[in-house]
Nucleic acid binder design. Structure first.
Lengths: 339, 339
DNA sequence: CTGTTAGCGCCTTCAC
DNA sequence: GTGAAGGCGCTAACAG
C-alpha cells in the first residue's frame, strides 16, 4: 500500500526498462530526450525518488563522515562543525556527530560504524586515536585502515593531520606577556591527556623559562575547560604565597571564570593581574575587560580537515600530510604592562 | 584482495550455511552452542563484521536522524545537540547535522535524505517546515510523511512538537522588569521569521502593554543574534530621543553586545539601564555585570525532541503531541530597580 | 541508444 | 537446529 515506488514502477509506467530509468535519472545525457522526458514525467507522477540506501549499498559507500569530539557541549565546536558541514555538503557528504563524552565505549560505537560501512571516514578531535583503531604508529609503512584525519593528535602518527600549532601559540602568548614586563606566570591548563594542551603548556612554559622565569609547579593548575573551572583555578592561585602577575588560561571559558573570580576577590584585571585566554570565542571581545586571547581559525580548521578526509576517501589526496594552522594573538584589555 | 570478508566467507570457514552465521551473530540463542562458537571463532579469525549498509538496506531503515538548524555556529546549539546525540546513541541511532545556513537548497538536500532513506526522521529547529515537506497544516487528518519533530514551529501544524514556551518566557522577562519599576522598554529581537522569536516578542510586549506601558515601534529593533548585532542595536537605541530604561534582548549574545556598547557610550549597566538576555549561556554568570537571563533547558530540550522522534519512528509514541518546556528566570546583576 | 541479466550482503521464509 | 533459495532496489556489464 503505502510502499514507496521503486524503479520498476517507473519503468512500467514509462514503458521502458529499469536500466533506462536509472540512466535517465542519474546520467540524463546518456539517454534520448524523449525517453528521458517520459521517465522523468513518470517518476514525478508517482513521486518516485531513487533509494539512496540501495545506491550506497551497491556502491559500497555511504558518503558519510563521522566527527569525533570529546565533548560537543564545548562552545568551541559550533564553528568547527560549521566548517566541516559546509565543506562536506558541497561535496555531497553528510556529517555524523560523534560525542565520546559517553566514555570509551561510545568511541568503539563510532569506530564500529566506520568498519561496518555506516561512514566512509572519520575526523578525530579527541587527542588520540579512538578505541578500536589499530595504532598506525606501530605500523612500519603507512596506515591502511579506514580514512582518518586527526585534528589534535601528537605528531608521529602515520595518519594525515590538520592541526593547530599549539606550541607556537603558547610561545606567542608567553612572548606577549614577557613583553609587557611580567615575570611571575601561571597557567590554567586543559587536560594533559590531549596533545594540544600539552603543546600549549610546553610552548608557554619553555618560553618563559628560557627568558629566565620558569613556572613553579604550584602555579600550573589543571582545569576542566568550563567557566567554573576557571573560577576554581583562580581560587587555588589566590591561595598561593607567590601570586603570579600574569595567567595564561588554555581557553576563554576558563579565562573568563578566572577573571570573574579574581574580581570577586578584589583584584583588578589587568591592573593587578593580567589574564589571557585561548580560542577567541564570540564574547571575548565584549566582556569587561575584553579578553586578550589566541584566535583559532575554527571554521577554516574544520573545513581543511574535512577536505583532507574527503580527498583521502576519494583517493585524490594532494599534499601535506601534517598541515599546521597558526593561531593569532589578539591583544585586548585583559593584559597590561606589569607595573 | 583487500576486500572485506562477507558472511559467505565465514560460512565456508565454519562449514555452516550463511543462514546459520547470520543467526549466530544476531540471535546467538537461536543456535546450538557448538555452532555458535565455531561461527564466532571463524568471524573473529578473519576480522568479519556484519555490513551495516546491507542490513539497513534490507530493513529499509537507516537508524539515522537529521537535525536541521538554521545556523550551527550559534553557541546556543552545542548543548541542544548534546541532548540529542546522547539520547540517540543510547537507542542505537546516529545524528546527522543539517545546517541550512547554506540557503533553502540545503534544506531540500536534507529533506531529500529523508525521502531517499538516508535518514529515518528529522528534528527541525528552523522555525518552520523545511522546503520539500508537504505542509501538514493543509492536511485535514494527520500528517503522513516521514517522522518529523518540530522544536520551534508555530502551533497548529499537525506534527509533534517539543517547544519552549517562549510567550511565557517573554512574559516572565517583562514581569521581572516591571517589578523593578521600569516603564520604558525596548527589545532587541531575533528575526520574526522564526515563531519562537515572535512569541518571545509578543509575550514581552503584551505584558508591558497591558501594564500600561506599550513599546513604541522605534524601540523594537531587530538583531542578527550575534554579539555585534547587540552592539549595533544598542547604538540605534542610543540615538532615540526616548531611551528606554530596560532592554530585553532575545539572546545572551546580543545582550552582551548591547551591554558592551552601552558601556562604551558611558552608560552604566544596570545603574543607568537594565539589560536582559535569553538562553543562559556559560558566560552569562561570569561577565561583569553578570547577565540576568531566561535559562533554557537546552540539553533536555534536545533529548526530549530526540526521544519523541525515535518514538515516532518506532511507532511507540506515547503521549503529548505538543510538549512545552518552560524557561526559567535567572536574576543576576544586569538588571536593577529603576531609580 | 536501450533491454536483459547478474549480482552487491544480508535476512527470512520454508523445507528438511 | 540447520540449509537452500528468494529478493530488498539499484547499477554495471553485456548484447542487441
Amino acid at each position: 500500500m503505502g510502499n514507496r515506488p521503486t524503479i520498476r514502477d517507473v519503468a512500467k509506467l514509462a514503458d521502458v526498462s529499469i536500466a533506462s530509468v536509472s540512466r535517465a535519472l542519474t546520467r540524463p545525457e546518456s539517454v534520448k530526450e524523449k525517453t528521458r522526458d517520459r521517465v522523468i514525467e513518470a517518476a514525478r507522477s508517482i513521486g518516485f525518488q531513487l533509494n539512496r540506501q540501495a545506491i550506497d549499498f551497491r556502491r559500497g559507500r555511504s558518503d558519510a563522515l563521522i566527527v569525533l569530539v570529546s565533548d560537543i557541549a564545548n562552545p568551541f565546536y559550533p564553528e568547527f562543525f560549521k566548517g566541516i558541514e559546509k565543506e562536506a555538503r558541497e561535496r555531497g557528504f553528510t556529517v555524523l556527530i560523534g560525542d565520546t563524552a559517553g566514555g570509551p565505549q561510545s568511541e568503539s560505537t563510532y569506530v564500529g560504524m566506520l568498519a561496518s560501512g555506516k561512514a566512509d571516514g572519520l575526523i578525530s578531535n579527541i587527542g588520540r586515536l579512538p578505541q578500536g583503531i589499530p595504532s598506525p604508529v606501530e605500523i612500519e609503512d603507512s596506515y591502511q585502515g579506514p580514512p582518518i584525519v586527526a585534528c589534535n593528535h601528537d605528531a608521529g602518527a602515520k595518519i594525515p593531520m590538520v592541526r593547530i600549532d599549539n606550541y607556537s601559540a603558547g610561545k606567542a602568548a608567553a612572548e606577549h606577556l614577557l613583553q609587557l614586563g611580567h615575570r611571575r606566570f601561571a597557567q590554567i591548563h586543559g587536560s594533559l591527556e590531549f596533545s594540544d594542551f600539552r603543546a600549549r603548556l610546553t610552548g608557554f612554559s619553555d618560553t618563559v623559562a628560557s627568558a629566565g622565569f620558569p613556572i613553579p609547579a604550584n602555579l600550573l593548575v589543571p582545569g576542566g575547560l568550563r567557566v567554573q573551572s576557571g573560577r576554581d583555578a583562580a581560587e587555588k592561585l589566590l591561595s598561593q604565597t607567590d601570586m603570579p602577575t600574569a595567567i595564561f588560561a588554555h581557553n576563554d571559558e576558563m579565562a573568563l571564570g578566572a577573571i570573574h573570580q579574581l574580581s570577586l576577590s578584589g583584584l583588578r584585571v589587568p591592573a593587578d593581574v593580567s589574564v589571557m585566554g585561548f580560542d577567541d570565542l564570540s564574547y571575548a571581545s565584549a566582556t569587561m575587560p575584553t579578553i586578550t586571547t589566541m584566535r583559532l581559525p575554527r571554521e577554516a580548521w574544520g573545513a581543511a580537515a574535512c577536505k583532507k578526509l574527503i580527498d583521502q576517501i576519494l583517493g585524490t589526496d594532494s599534499g601535506v600530510h601534517d598541515q599546521m594552522l597558526p593561531a593569532e594573538l589578539i591583544v585586548r584589555e585583559s593584559t597590561a604592562p606589569h607595573s
